[in-house]
Design a binder for these strands. Structure first.
Lengths: 244, 244
DNA sequence: CCTCGACCATACTGATGGGTAGCTATCCTA
DNA sequence: TAGGATAGCTACCCATCAGTATGGTCGAGG
């Protein structure tokens, strides 16, 4: 008499992106790890859409077409969910550092490669969580952990900058400030990429690296990688509109 | 027999930054606007410290040594509080655009001036609110309003870039991506400035502008604005430490 | 057939926090 | 000095939501 599990025909919403592995595969409901990963991804998507605090575990569960206790079956707390998303994102960047470590090219090119991967990671589905995981939202222990991971990446960038200055491939500069500027620009992608997906993460990262490399001030040589004309209209200014 | 207002002698905590204008000035408690502004500032400070969602109105009230209904006497909702903080921050940037509009210098220098003010605003007490006010946390109406203000600034930067490309003071580039990169780097200051106040906002902004202008790739000319030596130690790398 | 354990749902608790009702004190004006 | 406006407090309401207690279902092994 229990009407449990009688819902499938009533489902009116298509699975949207990746179908949840639950009802779809009532057989081989083995593989706990696979489901756990699905929970993490679903959480990342919801956090990305509505923010951490505006996302309830009921939301995440609903997205997976299960209930909240099921989510807790795979994860111990909401906080851990955020942390896992963070780690998933940050791991991509750490991989970029590892890949680049042994390349036999000037440090500036190694840095560029890292920054490109960095940008792609920030534009990925875990980008928001990686970038926006606030230490205020986490327990002291996890906060320390996250801070350490962020610091590791920050110092990795600074080191590449220092090496570049030493081998002559990078303009002398303050490594700390420069690293902040580069990482900040890339981190910020997570804020607007959600709404403007006209470019891929890789394209954005490449465009940013081009800006960083060349700088705004014109070089002595010719103008690289850009159209030359553009003297069409002379900057109309709409009378200081207060913008709605 | 009412023990109201009998607390002053029991106050064990010094006023920290700016003393709340309540108990301190029991006379001329005129000037509602002044108190309202104090509420906004207190909110900004608390949001800055703990984030919007982790700050309760009781916290803000406590910081002012009043109670929650008093806060509601000056403000209609928590959401409005955030919005006001946002506007206070953004207004500094709009002022920068106005100041610069009529300068008779190349567009790149006008852009630099705006960016310096931008950086200072982000490092100010309203920086966090301005940068982090999420549309998900606000009603649709205020969300639209905030988006419009952000868009106005974004397009202001893009226009300066376009003008710079046209008058030859800026390297040809994609205005949209370049504006995103510049604004992102500066916005991100709000994330780390809280913890590292070794520099003033103006100093940070100046350092960032220097990076943006020159770019990473060495110029043909001499090396500007940086120490020349620095070949001290050859980039020790601590065996891929997982950082705690 | 019967039990065990993995898995998941229903239905609850407890705390937090935005927001309000209504009373009180103080000041200004008449 | 009465009466209204200003300004602030105590005490409360109630929606939300993280997390849990409990129990039901199903496949697998005996």
């Amino acid at each position: 008499m229990n009407s449990r599990r009688a819902s499938p025909p009533a489902a009116g919403k298509q699975p949207e992106t990746a179908a949840s592995p639950w009802r779809a595969s009532r057989e081989r409901l083995r593989d706990r790890a696979l489901k756990r990963e699905a929970v993490i991804r679903a959480a990342a998507r919801e956090f990305n859409r509505k923010g951490y605090h505006n996302t309830s575990l009921d939301d995440i569960a609903a997205r997976l077409e299960v209930t909240k206790p099921t989510v807790y079956y795979y994860v111990t707390s909401k906080e851990q969910l955020l942390f896992q998303c963070f780690v998933a994102g940050v791991e991509q960047i750490r991989a970029a550092f590892r890949d680049v470590r042994h390349l036999e090219v000037p440090a500036r090119e190694r840095l560029n490669a890292v920054l490109r991967h960095y940008g792609e990671a920030v534009a990925s589905e875990f980008g928001w969580c990686m970038v926006r995981a606030e230490d205020q939202d986490l327990s002291p222990a996890m906060s320390r952990h996250i801070k350490a991971l962020k610091s590791e990446i920050d110092h990795g960038i600074r080191r590449l900058i220092r090496e570049g200055v030493q081998d002559g491939s990078i303009q002398p500069c303050d490594p700390k400030m420069t690293a902040f500027a580069l990482a900040g620009a890339l981190n910020w992608i997570a804020h607007w990429y959600r709404e403007d997906q006209s470019l891929t993460g890789a394209q954005i990262a490449a465009a940013f690296v081009a800006v960083f490399e060349g700088g705004l001030r014109p070089r002595a040589g010719a103008a690289p990688l850009a159209v030359r004309r553009g003297t069409r209209r002379r900057a109309r200014r709409p009378a200081q509109a207060v913008a709605r």
